[in-house]
Write a protein that binds this DNA or RNA. Sequence first.
DNA 1: AATGCATAATCCGTGTAGCGGAACTATGTT
DNA 2: AACATAGTTCCGCTACACGGATTATGCATT
Lengths: 274, 274
Amino acid sequence: MKQETADGVRSVERAASIIQAVADAGEAGARLTDIAIKTGMSKTTIHRLLGTLVKVGWLDQEDKSSTFYLGLPLVAIGNTASDRHGLLDLAAPHLKRLAELTGDTVYLAVRMGSQALCVDRVIGNFPIRTATLRIGDRRPLGTCPGSLALLAGQPQDLIEELMLSASHLQIGSLKVDTVGLPRLIAQSRASGYSMSPEVLVPGADGLGVPVMGAGGSAVAALSLETVDSRLSEPRRTQLVEWLQREAAELSENLLRLSPGFSQREVHRMLADAI
Amino acid sequence: MKQETADGVRSVERAASIIQAVADAGEAGARLTDIAIKTGMSKTTIHRLLGTLVKVGWLDQEDKSSTFYLGLPLVAIGNTASDRHGLLDLAAPHLKRLAELTGDTVYLAVRMGSQALCVDRVIGNFPIRTATLRIGDRRPLGTCPGSLALLAGQPQDLIEELMLSASHLQIGSLKVDTVGLPRLIAQSRASGYSMSPEVLVPGADGLGVPVMGAGGSAVAALSLETVDSRLSEPRRTQLVEWLQREAAELSENLLRLSPGFSQREVHRMLADAI
DNA sequence: AATGCATAATCCGTGTAGCGGAACTATGTT
DNA sequence: AACATAGTTCCGCTACACGGATTATGCATT
């Protein structure tokens, strides 16, 4: 065998590995050698690519030290990425309103492969604060209220596929309860909201609801995290109601403003309308 | 002349141009031809790079349409980028507290070249909401309260340099008042806070204070935006006091937890301490 | 100071990976 | 049906990236 299925621009793939390595290093940054160990690429190559990456602003070498950090321009890029179809702007008022009504922490998540990606959050004013997820954090679908709502809102065939997918079975320390999951999904669909399948943080718990897009599947999820004592019955029904109302409104705005239709389809529809 | 000073990995530079082009296109995404027009590169090259960029997850081609969006993994990367040295985590409680105390919108900004980059914000509960900046937005230094505080907090020689820098004179529709700026900087330094040099959004105004890092220069700025009627005197003094207190605490935490010292220096200091 | 050990920067010959013009296909428009 | 526009594939040429070897730098230890 020559190369596996290597088609693609090598340098760019390598550059991506480097960025990923630096991102994994987190707030502390990474040095050339760290990256070499992590990626297995030769130091020479990394050195060359580092130069380019610094040049384009994706990496940053503070003063002239040997530690590299992710470049600040990536902040703007990342934020634009999370605003695809204007979702962030549309959802912001709903998140804010929920956080005010409930006092708890509210999250907005979208699906990224077999994971849920947290793209926004608003922390409420209730004195005891629970804020487990940060923007950019990922969870395997089905392991927290939001990601469960997102999963349950997918078409059935996709659910099967996602549950089977190997990467889905275990990501980090979180393992998906493959056995119990179908029941949880059924429950979510029946009741219109999702509860946390297992307690991740002792004392904290949450609720999630799907945000429907065109085609009847979930494009996002709104979820809420609070101390478990504040999820008991009189309050829970109220919370679910609020979440569902905001999700419905958001869904409506999404469908009106950013259709999942191609330009051609829109054209055709406009033509028909005239 | 052969090539300008072109050293660097071409493909990666090109890939960066493409990502930038897609980012500039914003929430609506970009097509191959759009990118070709914007970057001036040949379609073949773009096509090849697009393939790679999709493969590494930096671009996303929804279903199989011809529109490319920024990949969701960039959200996580961008967020890590803004958390350099743990700034985001350290600052979050202060932002939250300020937003609660004041009811107004609070921003956290850092310097990126001759611009200020907004890396976090919390919208307060006051019924009239002003939220001009979004996370990832940039402003030339000196054009808004936060960026002015950031500028005034730099060492004098850097200020001169930044004010001279051509790119600084006009970015987008914002033009820096080069003439009035030195006075504004002096005022900011004397009073310990900055006011908006000019009104960007009618009826809205703000205050900014620097967050000091090691070496006595500003590493970040806290700022606050509100309706101008809420900035008149009895209240303004109170706001400045709150901002300065939070900035001071944040500064202290920054110095304690994430020093600008190299690993060796830390080593030596620890050794001395024993 | 002197030595030793990392890590980072530079050099350079080799081979291939990336380049882009042109031709082709697909899709929507008049 | 003919046109227009956007995207894809082909292919030969060369510039460009590769990585082993070498040198330079910066910190710790003696």
